[in-house]
Simulated assay, not measured.
Amino acid sequence: MGYSLVSASQQTKDMATDGLREAAAREKEREQANERLKQAEQQQKMNNTMAGATTGAMVGAQYGSVGGPWGAAIGAVAGFALGELF
Rank of each mutant, 00 (worst) to 15 (best):
D14P: 05
A81L: 08
A53K: 07
T54D: 00
G68P: 05
M1R: 15
S4C: 14
A73T: 12
Q42D: 06
R30L: 03
R21K: 15
N48L: 11
T54E: 00
S65Y: 07
S65N: 08
G2P: 15
S65G: 06
E31W: 02
G79L: 09
R36P: 00
K13A: 11
A78N: 03
P69H: 07
E31G: 01
M58P: 01
G64R: 03
Q10I: 15
N47M: 05
F80I: 07
L85T: 13
S65V: 09
E22Q: 08
K13F: 10
R36D: 02
G52E: 12
R21P: 04
K45F: 04
A78D: 06
A8C: 12
G79A: 11
N48I: 10
V66E: 14
L20M: 10
E22F: 08
G79R: 10
A40C: 06
E35S: 01
Q42C: 02
I74H: 07
A78S: 09
D18T: 12
M1I: 15
A40G: 08
M46D: 05
R21I: 11
A33C: 03
S7Q: 14
A61Q: 02
Q43L: 12
T49P: 03
L37K: 11
G68Y: 04
L37A: 13
G52A: 14
A25T: 13
G2E: 15
I74V: 14
M15P: 08
F86R: 13
G52P: 12
V77H: 00
I74K: 07
A76R: 05
G67W: 03
G56P: 00
M46I: 11
K38D: 03
A33Q: 08
L37F: 10
G83T: 08
T17S: 09
K28Q: 10
V6D: 13
A76K: 07
V66Y: 13
A73W: 08
T49G: 03
A72P: 01
Q10T: 15
G75A: 04
K45M: 10
E84L: 08
L37M: 13
R26E: 11
T54C: 00
L5F: 13
Q62H: 06
V77Y: 02
Y3E: 15
A40Y: 06
Q39C: 02
M58G: 03
E84I: 06
L85G: 13
L5I: 13
K28R: 11
G52R: 12
P69V: 05
Q62Y: 08
V59Y: 02
G83H: 10
V59W: 01
V77W: 01
A25C: 09
M46Y: 09
Y63E: 01
M1D: 15
E29F: 00
A57P: 03
A33H: 06
Q42S: 04
Q32F: 07
G2S: 15
A23G: 14
L37P: 05
E22W: 05
R21T: 14
V6K: 15
R30D: 01
L82Q: 14
A81G: 04
E29L: 03
D18A: 12
A8E: 13
A51G: 06
Q44S: 10
A57E: 02
N48D: 15
Q43A: 12
Q39T: 06
G79T: 09
Q39S: 02
E22R: 02
A33P: 01
E29R: 02
K38W: 01
K28G: 04
T54W: 00
M15D: 13
R30Q: 03
M46P: 02
G60E: 04
G2W: 15
A72D: 00
Q42I: 04
Q32T: 09
L37S: 10
D18H: 11
D14T: 11
